[in-house]
Deep mutational scan, measured.
Amino acid sequence: SAVVMEEGSPGEVPVLVEPPGLEDVEAALGMDRRTDAYSRSSSVSSQEEKSLHAEELVGRGIPIERVVSSEGGRPSVDLSFQPSQPLSKSSSSPELQTLQDILGDPGDKADVGRLSPEVKARSQSGTLDGESAAWSASGEDSRGQPEGPLPSSSPRSPSGLRPRGYTISDSAPSRRGKRVERDALKSRATASNAEKVPGINPSFVFLQLYHSPFFGDESNKPILLPNESQSFERSVQLLDQIPSYDTHKIAVLYVGEGQSNSELAILSNEHGSYRYTEFLTGLGRLIELKDCQPDKVYLGGLDVCGEDGQFTYCWHDDIMQAVFHIATLMPTKDVDKHRCDKKRHLGNDFVSIVYNDSGEDFKLGTIKGQFNFVHVIVTPLDYECNLVSLQCRKDMEGLVDTSVAKIVSDRNLPFVARQMALHANMASQVHHSRSNPTDIYPSKWIARLRHIKRLRQRICEEAAYSNPSLPLVHPPSHSKAPAQTPAEPTPGYEVGQRKRLISSVEDFTEFV
């Protein structure tokens, strides 16, 4: 048969007729292969192709491409040299491709048809291009793949890379869960390890502090508590009631339409708007009261037996805890006409967050109470924005700035309102402590230090009264110190430094 060459192609190359033996071998191979691939376009007849790359030819070592076609129900084999250009295909004639002069020997084609199974398996396991790669995943090629499931790999992101949580363990979102698992493993320790309690022994800490320079003076030496005195035992138990972190309780009120001037209507609300609910979820963490331990979680007086509701929101960081007394989460009882059960919590909070959804101005004093010092007013606006402002009593104007209003988005509203309420509550605590000038409020841990110092002074006084020969370590507060001759004046800087060093040991009130 003659071949018409394309323009620009090399000279004529004689194409030899395939021997009958080659056709029989390739026909047997075509019957084993699956003929249901995917359909081509209507211009080209339905056909199945599979590209198999052999590394070497037997005796020649030339890479070839073998295409199996099922045109007219008769499979045909096409061998081509890759750099050459194939002729145009037609549905009426068999596929013809040019070969190099080196394939002119018909014996070479017979060798190609009689490829060993080793070469076929190696060509099938190679990388296939384009559409033949999808075909190689079918059941027909499963014989050339190794048996057994593939090893499982770690989760992959859409980009093909490992997620960040699997790369950096410290930033993994499941870090707290692993800590819980470690605690569970520790709890399952053997009885021999049960006595080993991690941490620092208080006796060891005391020993280090006792021999430090801070205890060089007799006034700073630790003293032993009497065991037989019940009054001192009660004082030590009272110390446990003062937490070592700051605590805040903040009221949250929802004002519906037409309720801006009605205290009873505001306290009777059992739910609010959708934006109000989203605002609550951002204030803190939802907790169930019956599962809380009052000595570990500050509840601000809420009952854990269901008297004040089942849930509330709280927030904490390293040095403070805040609980929100939310009116809509507290039960509304029919027998309580004046809502006294709610007001006994909300009316005693220094700061209230008022979500004013009424469309009218909310005035300070609508919720009557002796300790309502500051109101954080949240007014929802259009386009997911809110107006946040402050209202306070006249005696609080020096501590709280009420002249600045803020426009905040719904997303950042819980954070801004919480921070403003916490700052206002700190100012309210300082303002409330002014009624007792001898006990200015600095912080909870300073209050613990003052309680310890008062307890020490009482013990020293009782020891001096029981044994008059012992001198008083600290003179009583009601006694007057003996007159001392004025010492020589020293520079102001040295006096300030000495006073600062003494105050650092005794108390921190002056620095606050």
Rank of each mutant, 00 (worst) to 15 (best):
D217F: 15
N220D: 15
K221C: 15
I223G: 11
I223C: 08
P226N: 15
N227T: 13
E228H: 07
S229A: 10
Q230W: 07
R234A: 12
S235E: 15
Q237R: 06
L238T: 07
D240L: 04
I242N: 07
I242W: 06
I242C: 07
P243Q: 08
S244D: 15
A251V: 02
V252F: 00
L253M: 04
L253V: 08
Y254N: 00
V255K: 01
V255R: 00
E257M: 08
E257W: 08
Q259K: 02
S260L: 04
N261K: 10
S262Q: 06
S262D: 15
L264I: 12
A265K: 11
I266W: 03
L267N: 03
S268C: 07
N269A: 03
N269D: 02
N269L: 01
S273D: 02
Y276D: 00
Y276A: 01
F279H: 00
F279Q: 00
L280M: 08
G282H: 04
G282W: 00
L286E: 06
L286N: 08
L289C: 11
L289E: 15
K290E: 07
K290L: 04
D291N: 14
D291W: 06
C292V: 10
Q293K: 12
P294Q: 15
G301R: 07
G301W: 03
G306T: 10
D308T: 10
D308A: 12
F311K: 07
T312G: 13
C314F: 10
W315Q: 04
H316S: 15
D317M: 01
Q321I: 09
F324G: 02
H325C: 04
A327P: 06
T328Q: 02
T328W: 01
M330E: 05
M330Q: 06
M330L: 06
M330R: 05
T332P: 06
K333P: 12
K337V: 14
K337R: 10
C340N: 15
K343F: 09
H345L: 12
H345Q: 10
F350R: 03
F350C: 03
V351C: 05
S352N: 04
S352H: 07
I353T: 00
Y355H: 00
Y355E: 00
D357G: 02
D357P: 00
S358L: 01
D361N: 08
F362M: 05
K363W: 06
K363I: 08
L364T: 15
L364E: 15
T366C: 07
T366S: 06
T366L: 05
I367Q: 04
K368F: 09
K368N: 15
F371D: 09
F371L: 15
F371E: 09
N372D: 09
F373Q: 13
V376G: 00
T379L: 03
Y383F: 11
N386I: 00
N386L: 01
L387A: 06
V388L: 07
S389M: 12
S389F: 07
L390Y: 11
C392P: 03
D395F: 14
D395T: 05
G398S: 12
L399E: 07
V400D: 03
A405N: 07
K406P: 15
V408T: 03
D410L: 00
N412G: 05
N412C: 07
P414N: 00
F415S: 03
R418K: 06
Q419P: 01
Q419A: 04
M420E: 04
A421G: 02
L422T: 03
A424P: 00
A424N: 03
N425V: 07
M426V: 07
M426G: 01
M426I: 10
A427W: 06
S428N: 02
S428E: 01
Q429W: 13
Q429K: 12
Q429S: 07
H431F: 12
H432P: 03
R434H: 10
I440E: 07
P442E: 11
A447I: 07
R448L: 06
L449R: 10
H451K: 07
I452A: 07
I459Q: 06
I459D: 05
I459V: 14
C460E: 14
C460P: 13
E461R: 11
E461P: 13
E462N: 10
A464R: 08
Y465P: 07
Y465T: 10
N467E: 14
S469R: 08
S469E: 14
L470Q: 15
L470F: 13
L470R: 14
P471W: 06
L472M: 13
L472V: 12
H474F: 12
H474Y: 11
H478F: 09
S479I: 08
P482Q: 14
P482G: 12
P486H: 12
P486M: 12
E488G: 14
P489Q: 09
P489K: 10
P489T: 11
T490E: 13
P491S: 10
P491Y: 09
G492N: 11
Y493Q: 15
Y493P: 14
E494H: 11
V495M: 12
G496D: 13
L501C: 10
I502Y: 11
I502W: 09
V505D: 14
F508W: 11
